[in-house]
Measured scan of single mutants.
Amino acid sequence: MAAGGDHGSPDSYRSPLASRYASPEMCFVFSDRYKFRTWRQLWLWLAEAEQTLGLPITDEQIQEMKSNLENIDFKMAAEEEKRLRHDVMAHVHTFGHCCPKAAGIIHLGATSCYVGDNTDLIILRNALDLLLPKLARVISRLADFAKERASLPTLGFTHFQPAQLTTVGKRCCLWIQDLCMDLQNLKRVRDDLRFRGVKGTTGTQASFLQLFEGDDHKVEQLDKMVTEKAGFKRAFIITGQTYTRKVDIEVLSVLASLGASVHKICTDIRLLANLKEMEEPFEKQQIGSSAMPYKRNPMRSERCCSLARHLMTLVMDPLQTASVQWFERTLDDSANRRICLAEAFLTADTILNTLQNISEGLVVYPKVIERRIRQELPFMATENIIMAMVKAGGSRQDCHEKIRVLSQQAASVVKQEGGDNDLIERIQVDAYFSPIHSQLDHLLDPSSFTGRASQQVQRFLEEEVYPLLKPYESVMKVKAELCL
């Protein structure tokens, strides 16, 4: 049975990233139509530049190519590739079939990587351009969430054990800070992308030097003109047959890092959902379990974690691919890159769409948070109580021993009897502590235990987050809708 299948058929496997999760716009960027249309555009740009620099290419040939950029006979191309065992030459023939007058000058002087690699770089750039505003929107939604809850005390956790208090907004800023680093890295790697350009079979530009009869300047002009037509500021000066596969490492490393950030955020949300302090959106008709109707599973956060793990592992592909590119190139890269580049971007696209949807509907339960604080705060307040007693004339050592005994009794009630923490009640009825009984409410005010959390939130948002989001103001209103 021949390899390949009808990918629109229910009898043929289709990647869930495309069929179930990723956005239509990201799927289109990695589609065959987008790819092969870009090949034709690159052939047109090459012909236009070659004509401008004096090669015998007519206006009629150029116009014929322009008129057929979208006229792609995919069936013919597939048949040609089956016959020739070469995808680029299959599309040269297919393009030439609908451009008979231009057929002889299509791909003039070029090698397969002229269309293959340059198209990949265009796709990487455009895919990054799709991700950047999506990530900015996630940051914006979380920034709104953090600002609104900047002063809401909550129990902090280290080692997932109760620690000092923080605020809900401050905790959210930990998430935002990681995503801001990801946004900066995505922008950097996007701006650092260079075009492969017009380089020939081993990167020496020998074929173009021959076409222009040894004119170095025209060869350099050709490279520059096509690079500018493709919208790049610069091209690699040095290439082998391909652009260095280190570029793929750079791009997928940034995406993998984004995956790590999203995994951490969504894990926190899942843990908070278990504590009943916070939940992701839950639709009115949504079913959490087929057997347990009360369940409210954090399905979206779980999906993000599941896909983020996949995204983090994909960076190993370009690392290994770059390491086995012998001399000017081997074909070890080809099949692998067809999979890992598309999957990385479709996965990143999915987790950003999902995280935006989550961040637009996060639900906080202040009463649950308050109750958990009441359970733990008495123990945390013991040092403040000791200091207040010393100020009232008591002995630190005597007070410490009193607190120690009462704390152990209260802990026994919590752990052995399943009761509430009654340390404060014990202190309130103990005559030894009568000098500070009137101060206990103040000493137990949760806001006095959150330090500068709310001020940190305000400063972080104003100095770091809002300036970073400013270039994306025009796209901030787009909502994230999930079908599944």
Score class of each variant (00 low, 15 high):
residue 342 A to R: 10
residue 386 I to K: 02
residue 319 L to E: 03
residue 132 L to Y: 11
residue 61 Q to R: 05
residue 264 K to G: 05
residue 182 D to I: 00
residue 342 A to L: 03
residue 423 L to R: 05
residue 35 K to M: 07
residue 257 S to A: 12
residue 326 W to G: 04
residue 440 L to E: 03
residue 299 M to F: 10
residue 178 D to V: 11
residue 398 D to Q: 15
residue 202 T to C: 14
residue 214 G to V: 07
residue 458 Q to F: 07
residue 222 L to F: 14
residue 18 A to D: 01
residue 148 E to V: 11
residue 102 A to F: 03
residue 380 M to L: 09
residue 311 L to C: 00
residue 280 E to S: 01
residue 162 P to G: 07
residue 405 V to P: 08
residue 61 Q to A: 08
residue 468 L to D: 07
residue 454 S to R: 13
residue 240 G to V: 03
residue 248 D to Q: 05
residue 345 F to K: 01
residue 327 F to K: 00
residue 248 D to N: 06
residue 89 M to L: 07
residue 128 L to M: 13
residue 244 T to E: 05
residue 408 Q to T: 12
residue 92 V to W: 00
residue 335 A to G: 11
residue 462 E to T: 12
residue 325 Q to N: 13
residue 16 P to K: 12
residue 229 K to C: 12
residue 267 T to E: 06
residue 44 L to R: 06
residue 413 V to W: 10
residue 291 A to G: 02
residue 130 L to P: 03
residue 14 R to I: 12
residue 124 L to S: 10
residue 303 R to W: 02
residue 446 P to K: 03
residue 382 T to N: 15
residue 57 I to L: 04
residue 33 R to A: 03
residue 98 C to I: 09
residue 114 Y to I: 06
residue 387 M to S: 14
residue 8 G to H: 15
residue 60 E to T: 04
residue 466 Y to I: 13
residue 147 K to T: 09
residue 155 L to C: 03
residue 318 P to T: 05
residue 474 S to M: 08
residue 424 I to S: 11
residue 290 S to A: 05
residue 271 L to M: 06
residue 30 F to D: 03
residue 409 Q to D: 13
residue 45 W to V: 06
residue 132 L to F: 14
residue 44 L to H: 01
residue 77 A to Y: 06
residue 194 R to Q: 10
residue 235 A to M: 13
residue 2 A to R: 12
residue 116 G to N: 08
residue 358 I to A: 15
residue 272 L to A: 01
residue 309 R to K: 09
residue 294 Y to G: 01
residue 216 D to K: 12
residue 100 P to I: 05
residue 250 E to M: 06
residue 352 L to D: 05
residue 116 G to T: 13
residue 276 K to P: 01
residue 147 K to N: 15
residue 194 R to A: 13
residue 465 V to W: 04
residue 448 S to I: 14
residue 335 A to D: 01
residue 373 I to W: 00
residue 226 V to I: 04
residue 304 C to F: 02
residue 195 F to Y: 12
residue 350 T to W: 06
residue 333 D to Y: 00
residue 229 K to W: 04
residue 310 H to N: 08
residue 350 T to K: 04
residue 238 I to Q: 10
residue 234 R to N: 02
residue 289 S to L: 02
residue 249 I to L: 13
residue 409 Q to R: 07
residue 459 R to F: 07
residue 400 H to S: 05
residue 285 Q to W: 05
residue 321 T to Q: 05
residue 216 D to T: 12
residue 249 I to D: 10
residue 282 F to N: 15
residue 400 H to W: 02
residue 356 Q to W: 05
residue 107 H to Q: 04
residue 417 E to N: 10
residue 427 I to A: 13
residue 88 V to T: 09
residue 202 T to Q: 12
residue 90 A to M: 01
residue 378 P to Q: 02
residue 434 S to A: 13
residue 456 Q to W: 04
residue 368 V to F: 07
residue 176 I to C: 12
residue 145 F to N: 13
residue 232 F to V: 01
residue 78 A to Q: 15
residue 189 V to N: 15
residue 49 A to K: 00
residue 173 C to K: 02
residue 316 M to P: 07
residue 312 M to C: 06
residue 266 C to Y: 04
residue 397 Q to D: 11
residue 391 K to Q: 09
residue 72 I to M: 15
residue 320 Q to G: 14
residue 262 V to C: 12
residue 203 G to F: 03
residue 289 S to N: 02
residue 184 Q to G: 11
residue 282 F to G: 14
residue 193 L to Q: 13
residue 72 I to L: 12
residue 256 A to F: 01
residue 148 E to D: 12
residue 111 T to K: 01
residue 69 L to T: 04
residue 178 D to R: 13
